[in-house]
Design a protein around this nucleic acid. Structure first.
Length: 414
DNA sequence: AACGCTTACAACCGCAGAAAC
DNA sequence: CGTTTCTGCGGTTGTAAGCGT
């Protein structure tokens, strides 16, 4: 799948040699540990502080696309596909911005999806956009009412009107094309309201379109129970997308927009939000709040995909290996992606997050009726426990930290 | 079974902008 | 104020798996 980079692979590649190619579960664990301790950002420090032979960019990419706890994996739902189509039609190949409107989805994932879709449809000689989507796009463009033209609306400008920037032409009228642009329709036309309820709602109800302000789990903006892991906070604009801070300015507008685009007729998602500061998007993993470290509450399940961070109470005498003996956080991932050719080490992932058996995707799947799919969790080139152990020990032997610092291995390898 | 093509996906690269020094 | 470093984005590539012949 990934390349080996033509040689510089393997941590044994020499001091200073950066490893390329697929990430292993052992490397994932090191990276996750680092993020747990220091939070996101400063990716180049990962290598310095952990000895991980990966460049900062690679670490960031790995975390953002595979390891962060609020990722949604699995095939795109029809709603998400339509959402992508609309957004792409409006803003083009702005994958990061598109992904910001699809919580849990990464820009890379959307980009891959789009590229394969493009190839397929181009090969088939089909239009890129379904007719109805194309009409919606065309109408929005025709009215200069593209809410995505510039999402960088001044935060807090609650009374501002929608941005009226016209993106470059995307669709061209072609009389021979049955899916060509419809005739211009006045923005106030009842036809709009009847035929394009989405557009109508946007016109009538939306005065401000803003990108949701992303918030990381550990951000101080999140109301968290006591005992949160002491990860440092970062500026919100630098934080990963996919979690919307309703408390921040414009958050609700972004949510309404998402709600509209995703077809959530209930409007504001906030009303369904179990937490006043954490917003759940439709068709998305539930973003449960942290459990009280002192409790042993199970991860929250609400019928959908679940992504949770669970902090079980430490057993008597048990010290948290990551946080100086305070608590131990278990990150539990669950999603509904049918396993395909995943080769992740389930054991590695379970162990990586300190999750109990059965709480990681592969195990979860195997526990589901009729599913024997392998783990859809973070992928890895490591395919079995033995390899994982071996590779982990090799890696740990290169790290400045004692091996027990990582909770890995029980004997001195020196 | 072998082969070739397609698909899906992970990961790399180069670039640009922001931040830090 | 110029330089360096960091970060994020979009494009691209390589490869495993799926699938048809």
């Amino acid at each position: 799948m990934a390349r080996n980079g033509g040689g510089a692979s393997g941590v044994e590649g020499g001091v200073g040699a950066l490893k390329k190619g697929p990430w292993t579960a052992a490397e994932d664990k090191v990276l996750v540990d680092h993020v747990r301790r220091h939070g996101e950002g400063n990716w180049n420090a990962v290598r310095r502080e952990t000895g991980l032979q990966r460049c900062g960019k690679s670490c960031r990419l790995r975390w953002a696309n595979h390891l962060r706890p609020n990722l949604r994996k699995g095939p795109f739902t029809p709603e998400e596909e339509r959402h992508i189509l609309r957004l792409h039609g409006l803003i083009g190949n702005k994958w990061a911005r598109i992904s910001s409107h699809l919580p849990g989805r990464t820009d890379n994932e959307i980009k891959n999806y789009w590229n394969t879709r493009i190839k397929r449809r181009q090969r088939a000689g089909q239009p890129l956009y379904p007719p109805d989507i194309e009409r919606e796009i065309a109408l929005l463009r025709a009215q200069n009412a593209n809410p995505f033209a510039d999402a960088d609306v001044v935060p807090g400008a609650a009374t501002a009107t929608a941005t009226l920037l016209l993106p470059p032409p995307l669709l061209h009228h072609d009389a021979s094309n049955p899916f060509a642009l419809p005739p211009a329709v006045p923005s106030h036309s009842p036809l709009v309201n009847q035929t394009y309820p989405l557009l109508s709602q946007m016109q009538q109800g939306m005065q401000v379109f803003q990108s949701p302000q992303p918030v990381f789990h550990h951000d101080v903006g999140i109301v968290s129970p006591p005992g949160l892991p002491p990860l440092p906070t970062r500026a919100q604009q630098e934080l990963p997308s996919n979690q919307f801070d309703a408390a921040s300015g414009g958050g609700t507008a972004g949510l309404l927009l998402d709600s509209l685009l995703l077809g959530d007729d209930d409007g504001y998602l906030l009303r369904h939000n179990p937490s006043p500061s954490m917003v759940k998007a439709p068709s998305m993993p539930s973003l449960s709040s942290y459990c009280d470290p002192g409790s042993r509450l199970p991860p929250v399940h609400d019928g959908g995909d679940v992504v949770s961070s669970h902090c079980p109470a430490a057993a008597p005498g048990e010290e948290d290996v990551h946080l100086g003996g305070a608590t131990k956080w278990n990150f539990t991932f669950e999603d509904a992606r049918p396993g395909k050719r995943r080769t992740a080490s389930v054991m590695g992932i379970s162990d990586m997050f300190g999750a109990p058996a059965g709480s990681v995707p592969g195990e979860w799947f195997s526990a589901c009726a009729g599913s024997t799919a392998p783990s859809p969790g973070p992928s890895s080139a490591v395919t079995n426990d033995e390899d994982f152990n071996l590779e982990m020990r090799q890696l740990m032997s290169t790290l400045p930290l004692p091996i027990d610092e990582h909770g890995w291995g029980t004997h001195n390898l020196g």
